[in-house]
Write a protein that binds this DNA or RNA. Structure first.
Lengths: 158, 158
DNA sequence: TATTGTTATACTCTATAACTATA
DNA sequence: TATAGTTATAGAGTATAACAATA
């Protein structure tokens, strides 16, 4: 006999998520939440959010990128990107330059200030990720990446 | 010499996300998005969202669960859970019963209708996940789960 | 005094239609 | 006619404060 009255309920004690753990998506989502909130916490002191940081990295890696391409890469709608680019430009982190061959479009580039902030942010994120991955070998990490990318490509269009 | 004028930009051609791929969180987030949108698509015909499905599974596994415990398990705030429970109760999928020993609280349970819908939904989600994991062995899947849970527990409180 | 569920509300994110200026 | 960026706006999702009933 248990000490507490053995009702078959969860009114006291731990809540079981065993049923949800049967779905891999649940475990992946929980892990994703943990990683994202950690990254967000690391970026906050630099006045960056996950989106603005991602935008900075993408523009840095793709100089001359247009806003519609950036929106597409970030997986957000064009209208919603405008305020993000406004913010980054207003802080002097990126530049909007008119494209001579197509005066409708803007070519986005990272400024020197933006580049150094991006590098500092990247280092901070890398450090935090390494801490989260403590005890996980480089080989295991490679394996996660490979498996994730296989699932992603199987899932097709989203 | 390339055929197109070789500007060092991305105004034409593919956008590189190599810089973001350096962060494991990016790859995991993309995979998570794919899985979640696939699950959402599978649940839609059953008039379930990911939250309502998760709530159904949790209440089913923890009969007598209270709303505050459910909100906690789902990672949402108590006020936001109210409309979810309203919806599930309104559709006759769960029941709210007063707890005799604490008349402030409700004991949540899944009805017979809710149980059969939950089982159908679970089967559909499982089938879709299996399709996404096509080509990934049971051992690899176990490995993903183990590694994810290690990362999750290292990340601590969120 | 503290807690359960609730209401009201605000803030962020996301999604769509429609405008402008160019092409 | 179509496209790039923009504006306005509406809808989710999420967060906090405060209330009534109960402990």
């Amino acid at each position: 006999m248990a000490t507490r009255d053995s009702q078959d309920d969860a009114s006291a004690g731990q809540v079981s998520d065993a049923g949800l753990r049967a779905f891999l998506g649940y475990t992946i989502k929980r892990t994703d939440n943990v990683i994202l909130s950690n990254i967000a916490a690391v970026l906050k002191p630099l006045d960056l959010r996950v989106v603005t940081f991602s935008a900075l990295v993408l523009v840095g890696d793709n100089p001359g990128l247009r806003q519609s391409q950036l929106a597409d890469a970030l997986g957000i709608e064009r209208p919603n990107l405008v305020v993000i680019v406004d913010e980054l430009e207003g802080r002097g982190l990126i530049r909007r330059d008119r494209v001579p061959t197509d005066r409708r479009a803007y070519a986005l580039t990272v400024t020197a200030v933006g580049k150094s902030l991006c590098e500092a942010a990247s280092a901070a994120v890398r450090t935090r990720e390494d801490a989260l991955l403590d005890g996980i070998s480089a080989a295991e990490r490679k394996q996660i990446e490979g498996l994730m990318r296989r699932i992603e490509s199987t899932g097709g269009r989203r």
